[in-house]
Deep mutational scan, measured.
Amino acid sequence: DSWHDTVDGIELELHGADEELLKLAKELLKRGVSEEEVRRIIEELLK
Rank of each mutant, 00 (worst) to 15 (best):
D1E: 12
D1A: 05
D1L: 01
D1M: 01
D1P: 09
D1S: 08
D1H: 04
D1C: 03
D1N: 07
S2D: 11
S2G: 10
S2R: 04
S2W: 12
S2V: 06
S2M: 13
S2K: 09
W3S: 15
W3F: 15
W3L: 14
W3D: 13
W3G: 15
H4R: 05
H4P: 14
H4S: 08
H4Y: 09
H4A: 08
H4Q: 10
H4D: 11
D5Q: 03
D5F: 00
D5Y: 00
D5C: 03
D5T: 06
D5L: 01
D5R: 00
D5I: 02
D5S: 04
T6V: 13
T6A: 10
T6D: 09
T6Y: 08
T6P: 09
V7R: 08
V7N: 15
V7Q: 09
V7L: 09
V7C: 01
V7D: 07
V7K: 09
D8P: 13
D8C: 09
D8Y: 01
D8V: 15
G9R: 12
G9K: 12
G9I: 15
G9L: 15
G9Q: 07
I10D: 11
I10F: 15
I10C: 03
I10L: 15
I10A: 13
I10N: 15
I10V: 08
E11F: 04
E11L: 13
E11H: 15
E11D: 12
E11M: 07
E11W: 01
E11P: 02
E11I: 12
L12V: 11
L12C: 14
E13N: 03
E13R: 00
E13T: 01
E13G: 04
E13Q: 04
E13F: 00
L14G: 08
L14Q: 07
L14H: 07
L14R: 06
L14I: 15
L14C: 05
L14D: 04
L14Y: 06
H15S: 14
H15I: 11
H15N: 13
H15K: 10
H15E: 10
H15M: 10
H15V: 14
G16V: 11
G16H: 06
G16Q: 06
G16S: 07
G16K: 02
G16P: 03
G16M: 07
G16R: 01
G16E: 09
A17F: 07
A17S: 09
A17N: 06
A17R: 05
A17H: 10
A17C: 03
A17V: 13
D18V: 11
D18T: 15
D18E: 10
D18A: 14
D18H: 12
E19S: 04
E19T: 04
E19P: 06
E19Q: 05
E20P: 06
E20H: 06
E20F: 11
E20Q: 07
E20N: 08
E20W: 11
L21H: 06
L21M: 13
L21G: 02
L21C: 06
L21I: 13
L21R: 02
L22A: 08
L22V: 13
L22G: 06
L22C: 04
K23H: 10
K23C: 02
K23N: 10
L24M: 10
L24G: 02
L24H: 09
L24E: 02
L24P: 00
L24F: 10
L24V: 08
A25E: 03
A25Y: 08
A25C: 01
A25G: 03
A25V: 14
A25Q: 03
A25T: 02
A25D: 00
K26N: 10
K26H: 08
K26S: 09
K26D: 10
K26E: 13
E27H: 04
E27C: 06
E27L: 01
E27N: 04
E27K: 04
E27Y: 01
E27S: 05
E27W: 01
L28P: 00
L28A: 02
L28G: 00
L28W: 01
L28I: 03
L28E: 01
L28F: 01
L29C: 01
L29A: 04
L29K: 04
L29G: 02
L29N: 02
K30F: 03
K30V: 13
K30A: 15
K30S: 10
K30N: 15
K30I: 11
R31W: 04
R31M: 11
R31L: 09
R31D: 08
R31K: 15
R31E: 08
R31G: 12
G32S: 02
G32W: 01
G32A: 02
G32Y: 01
V33H: 15
V33S: 05
V33R: 04
V33T: 08
V33G: 03
V33C: 12
V33E: 06
V33K: 05
V33I: 08
V33A: 07
S34A: 12
S34D: 07
S34M: 06
S34E: 08
S34W: 03
S34C: 08
E35M: 15
E35L: 15
E35P: 13
E35Q: 15
E35K: 15
E35T: 14
E35S: 15
E35I: 12
E35N: 11
E36M: 12
E36K: 09
E36V: 14
E36W: 04
E36D: 13
E36T: 14
E36R: 07
E36Q: 14
E36A: 14
E37R: 06
E37Q: 10
E37T: 08
E37I: 13
E37H: 04
E37N: 08
E37K: 08
V38Q: 00
V38K: 01
V38A: 03
V38Y: 02
V38L: 04
R39L: 11
R39P: 01
R39F: 05
R39M: 07
R40W: 06
R40H: 12
R40P: 00
R40A: 10
R40M: 06
R40V: 05
R40D: 03
I41T: 06
I41D: 00
I41Q: 03
I41P: 00
I41F: 13
I42C: 02
I42S: 00
I42W: 02
I42T: 01
I42V: 09
E43W: 04
E43Y: 06
E43P: 00
E43A: 12
E43K: 14
E43F: 08
E43I: 13
E44A: 14
E44F: 05
E44L: 10
E44P: 04
E44W: 04
E44H: 10
L45F: 09
L45Y: 13
L45I: 12
L45E: 03
L45Q: 05
L45S: 03
L46C: 03
L46A: 06
L46K: 07
L46P: 01
L46I: 11
L46Y: 04
L46W: 05
L46F: 05
K47P: 05
K47R: 13
K47V: 12
K47G: 07
K47L: 12
